[in-house]
Amino acid sequence: MSAGDGFFYFFAFLTLFFGVLVVYNPFSRNPVTSAMFLVLTILSLAGLFLLLNAFFLAAVQVLVYAGAVIVLFLFVIMLLDIKEEERRKIRVISAGTGFLAVAAIAFTIISRLIWTTRPGAGLPAATVVGSTAELGTILFQKFLLPFEILSLLLLVAMVGVILLSKKDLK
């Protein structure tokens, strides 16, 4: 097993482990805990991105997700003063059926993956690297129009948020 493969298993394990803790934490049902584990999940994912030569995206992942988005979550949690999910009973039936449905999806996809690809072939040799310069070049040439539209989307989102946050919508 090469060092790269070792890193893959390490980061994959961490991602899924923290992901589970985001969804279901047996010790705390506080949203803050979930948010913190989300940060960890995203950081491990950034590690996987690095293994896939997507350096720029790994950085964006850390900056935007782990930085901005999670801060926004925490900010709202504090704003709303939600301490802990009230001690309501977990509905076993609904959680169980939900789990079954989700497991069915996972099983279908993964079994399909295993049957159709040739496992163990590994990845081809990398010729393209997702560096800032490379990504910037393709972004401002091939995807210039979607990029500009994206800026418009951000503007709309900003306007929407401001409008929603006003106390009385008149």
């Binding site: 298993y9 991602t15 899924l16 996972a106 996809i109 993964i110 690809t117 163990g120 990845l123």
Partner: peptide
């Protein structure tokens, strides 16, 4: 041990 390929990543992605 098999080499890590596309399917490994996709499996992680599906599970997540």
């Amino acid at each position: 041990m098999m080499k890590v390929g596309l399917e490994h990543y996709l499996t992680v992605s599906a599970l997540l």
